[in-house]
Design a protein around this nucleic acid. Structure first.
Length: 598
RNA sequence: GGCCCUAUAGUUCAAUGGAUAGAACACAAGUUUCCUAAACUUGCGAUAUAGGUUCGAUUCCUAUUGGGGCUACCA
């Protein structure tokens, strides 16, 4: 039980006794005391006044005095304009430091009585183009959320769903067939996913010309032209051939997909992302089709005049949704229906989380309802973790037009900047190239991951490619640097054979900044829980920045090895080590590694 | 047209309905005989507008305006 609850509990029972009331626990509001006031926790007195029928000053005085009298947890109290600020006795904080220092998993609650089996799907790239900044946010959020849920004691399965079939894939294929001249990624020395992506962009360029021509020369409206374009018709024909398992088309498809997968493997390795299982839509989409047909027999879906199959959701306040095209091929929804069912057969999950952008809010709403209509009880356990788009200063990224910030390019750019910065500062002089590169890798990836994850996932975020991502201030490297400093202290202590871990913490007089640090350390366990409840890696990021900032102030203001008092010196080392451990754990939850030095 | 999300310093981000709205970057000025200056300290500067609920609103509700998204045969 955490301190806030303990205090609230005690305060309520004291209050009830004082004023002969029967308050519920949730009437009493308790918060952490703001830094500019004395005290650790604050009870807001306003809501209590109507029960006590006294002034804030009186209630605060009586409540504070009674709490302090009966319990040595409380060392002091003070009333400031309607707020009762309570101080916790130092011995409580010191005991906490000793305890946390001995727990290597401090912050993680790996035993959870409400343990759930959670399947989390993220990344979900298409094989017609390389990944861009939008995918990066998806990958980082999915990976970090998995780690956070695990830290909350859940059984987490990370799955990737690769969309390796469909009209968009055929577009790349068709363009390559038409204009590729038999070239390969190898012959052109181009990463496979980029190679294929080039043809996707090329298709769209030619398609646009096609459409313009139809409008100008044949007098079509824009809509008609878009539909009637010969190029698009050809791609559709290819998709039908693909669904009929046409040998030539399938061979081409296999080939181009394998190029893309080679590229993706490299990108995932660079990003430090792994999956427990990868599903391919080409292997699951038929299940979706089968389900739709079964439910057609049962009369749960409708068939239009042109033979397309749809479900009418107007009763649920939504529109009609197509499930099979008039030519019998599957749409996105069809696939997701099938995939969900297979997923449940595979894992019998308690919860299934889709990490997908908020542009698909409607899609997942429909998916859930349709599965419910089809009689799948577990559809209520599907959750859409909807995150905001990454926008460029001049608007949304459009991969059709090639207007994107490419994932691989961005990583390379980050590395270059990190290397340049490091050389300027002369930080890693004297290390071997391998050691140096490894540290640079960690720093540049941290800068990128932190930049993305510190933002509330629900919100859209802006990325300006013209301004490179910072390495100073509220950044990943800043936090890594704090860790590296601490690591250096610990190393030195070992060299000097100082065994600070054994230090008993009894009568240490805490400086303000030390106490503040301990309180922040204490918060970590709550932050991990909240981050799990709210699906928000940003909670962890903001927390760890704050902790690092406070530690740097402590490090700057107070002597450690130069402290004469042995007990205090050992205490400060112990505190430092604890902060270092928490930084490491917290960064781990964001998928960020720590360098031993930097 | 309908539905959903969103609006905080010059910029990028914070703030379970609680105290004087926090940071970072940028800008201006300081701190290295001292454990890593990728650090620390100081200054400048913001809740779109109009109502409402409340002891108290950046937070909840309504309207307006701006931005983004979705709206059955793209995924």
């Amino acid at each position: 039980m955490n301190l806030e609850k303990i205090i609230a509990h005690k305060a309520v029972s004291v209050f009830n006794k004082l004023y002969e009331q029967t308050l519920e626990n949730n009437v009493l509001q308790i918060t952490k005391t703001k830094k500019e006031f004395n005290g650790d926790y604050t009870i807001v007195l306003f809501p209590l006044l109507r029960y006590a029928r006294k002034s804030p000053q009186q209630v605060g005085e009586e409540l504070g005095a009674e709490l302090k009298k009966n319990d040595n947890l409380f060392s002091d109290y003070e009333i400031v304009s309607g707020y009762l600020n309570i101080s916790i006795d130092n011995s409580y904080w010191l005991d906490f430091v000793s305890e946390a220092s001995q727990n290597p998993d401090y912050g993680m609650s790996l035993e959870n009585e409400n343990k759930q089996k959670i399947v989390i799907e993220f990344s979900s790239p298409n094989t017609n183009k390389p990944q861009h900044l939008g995918h990066i946010r998806n990958n980082f959020l999915g990976d970090s959320l998995s780690r956070i849920l695990k830290a909350n004691g859940h059984d987490v399965v990370k799955v990737n769903l690769v969309n390796d079939r469909g009209i968009h894939i055929c577009k790349s294929m068709l363009a390559w067939e038409k204009w590729g001249d038999g070239t390969t990624p190898k012959s052109e020395n181009r990463k496979g996913d980029h190679f294929v992506g080039d043809y996707y962009v090329l298709f769209n360029k030619m398609y646009k010309k096609d459409v313009e021509q139809l409008i100008e020369e044949e007098g079509y409206t824009e809509k008609e032209a878009e539909k009637e374009s010969p190029l698009l018709q050809e791609a559709k024909k290819m998709l039908r051939k693909w669904e009929r398992k046409n040998k030539k088309v399938r061979e081409l498809w296999q080939n181009m997909n394998s190029w893309v997968f080679d590229g993706f493997d490299k990108t995932y390795a660079d990003l430090g992302i792994e999956f427990d299982k990868t599903y391919l839509e080409s292997e699951t989409y038929l299940e979706g089709k089968a389900i739709v047909l079964t439910n057609m027999k049962r009369g749960r879906v409708e068939v239009a005049n042109d033979d397309s199959v749809f479900v009418d959701l107007e009763a649920d306040g939504l529109d009609k949704k197509i499930l099979l095209r008039s030519d019998g091929t599957s749409v996105y929804m069809t696939q997701d229906l099938g995939t969900a069912i297979i997923r449940y057969e595979d894992y019998s999950f308690d919860k299934h989380i889709y990490v997908v952008g908020n542009e698909q809010d409607y899609h997942f709403k429909v998916l859930k309802i349709v599965l419910g209509k089809f009689g799948y009880e577990w559809s209520k356990n599907l959750e859409h973790f909807s995150y905001g788009m990454v926008e460029l200063p001049d608007g949304k990224m459009k991969s059709r037009e090639g207007k994107v910030v490419d994932a691989d390019d961005l990583l390379a750019e980050m590395k270059k900047t990190a290397m340049q910065k490091t050389d300027e500062l002369g930080k890693l002089d004297g290390l071997s190239d391998d050691e140096k590169n490894e540290i640079i890798r960690k720093i540049s990836l941290a800068a990128l991951k932190y930049f993305i994850l510190k933002v509330d996932p629900k919100k859209n975020m802006t990325f300006n490619p013209a301004e490179s991502i910072d390495f100073n201030g509220n950044t990943g490297p800043f936090i890594q640097y704090t860790y590296a400093r601490i690591n250096s202290l610990v190393r030195k202590a070992e060299e000097l054979s100082i065994n600070f871990g054994e230090q008993k913490l009894d009568n240490i007089n805490l400086q303000d900044i030390e106490k503040q640090l301990i309180k922040t350390i204490y918060e970590f366990q709550n932050v991990v829980v909240d981050a799990g409840k709210n699906y928000s890696p940003a909670f962890i990021a903001n927390y760890i920045y704050n902790l690092s900032k406070e530690y740097n102030r402590f490090y700057h203001d107070l002597p450690i090895f130069k402290e004469n008092d042995e007990e205090i010196k050992n205490f400060r080392l112990k505190l430092s080590k604890l902060v270092g451990d928490i930084i490491k754990t917290a960064l781990y939850l964001l998928g960020i590694e720590v360098p031993a030095r930097m």
